[in-house]
């Protein structure tokens, strides 16, 4: 899925969350969104998912203007926030069933894929447990299982590496993100861990107070940013230093 943002602004009251952000993504890319707290990372993901409407600017998918009520387009996008929303009081399996139906991904083969992912994530045993009895990491993993079963064209993950998942979950996530990119899926995730971004992503997007300060390949990031590289943008250099050595 080809994605294009042009001059996107978003403010919350007087606080500017996104300030004229423009970027373009191609299918098969994995993009890490980096930035300090309050830089606008989550807002960017929310705008991309349609949960938040930009004040100005456009979001286009495959040259099609993105509107929130375009359900067909929204079903091709899955946004996984750091606290996944789940229906309280029902089982994990019931939640997954609703998600598959909502995303029209309940066709043939879906149950088999779901069982596979639940097994890999060590969740099969917990499938019938009420969702509110699960830990934060387990809830995140169950939402991740839904995401991987649905396999949308655009994956939007908010802080997946700080989601409370155990090493097994993180390992599955890393391997599946690369596999999804190989299948032509676009993955955008936010993180504060530079090392993980360097290992997982093709491109890095650095936000600072809502402004897009850098949108380059990981290789360029390695050479340009940080104390060893060319400090062409002191803000980016300082941020990367901070992320490397907190």
């Amino acid at each position: 899925m080809h994605l294009e943002l042009s001059r996107v602004f978003k403010t919350y009251g007087r606080s500017r969350a996104l300030d004229s952000v423009s970027m373009s993504l191609e299918p098969g890319q994995v993009v890490a969104v980096l930035g300090a707290n309050g830089a606008g990372k989550s807002t960017l993901l929310r705008v991309l998912s349609g949960l938040v409407k930009a004040d100005h600017g456009e979001v286009r998918y495959d040259d099609r203007l993105f509107r929130h009520d375009d359900l067909e387009l929204r079903r091709r996008i899955f946004f996984l926030p750091d606290f996944p929303p789940m229906l309280d009081g029902v089982s994990m399996l019931a939640n997954l069933g609703v998600l598959l139906k909502v995303y029209a991904a309940d066709g043939p083969g879906a149950p088999e894929r779901l069982v596979d992912w639940l097994q890999k994530l060590d969740l099969l045993e917990l499938a019938e447990k009420p969702i509110n009895t699960l830990s934060r990491g387990q809830i995140y993993k169950s939402a991740l299982a839904a995401l991987m079963t649905i396999d949308p064209e655009l994956w939007l993950l908010d802080e997946p590496l700080a989601s409370g998942m155990d090493p097994r979950g993180l390992s599955v996530l890393r391997s599946e993100v690369r596999a999804a990119a190989a299948r032509g899926r676009t993955v955008v995730f936010s993180t504060q861990i530079l090392e993980a971004a360097e290992r997982l992503a093709d491109r890095a997007c650095v936000l600072h107070r809502g402004e897009l300060r850098l949108f380059e390949s990981i290789e360029t990031l390695r050479t340009r940013g940080g104390a060893d590289g060319d400090p062409s943008d002191p803000v980016v250099a300082a941020l990367l230093d901070q992320l490397r050595d907190p």
């Binding site: 399996l93 019931a94 997954l96 069933g97 598959l100 139906k101 309940d106 879906a110 149950p111 088999e112 779901l114 069982v115 639940l118 097994q119 099969l124 045993e125 499938a127 019938e128 447990k129 009895t133």
Partner: peptide, 25 residues
């Protein structure tokens, strides 16, 4: 009491494969 009523992984896998969870309650 809660855990005693929970089915095991095999039963859960069978339940999922039967597509019962996709039928609206």
């Amino acid at each position: 009491a809660q855990s005693a009523h929970l089915p095991g992984p095999t039963a859960n896998a069978d339940a999922i494969l039967s597509r019962a969870f996709l039928v609206s309650p």
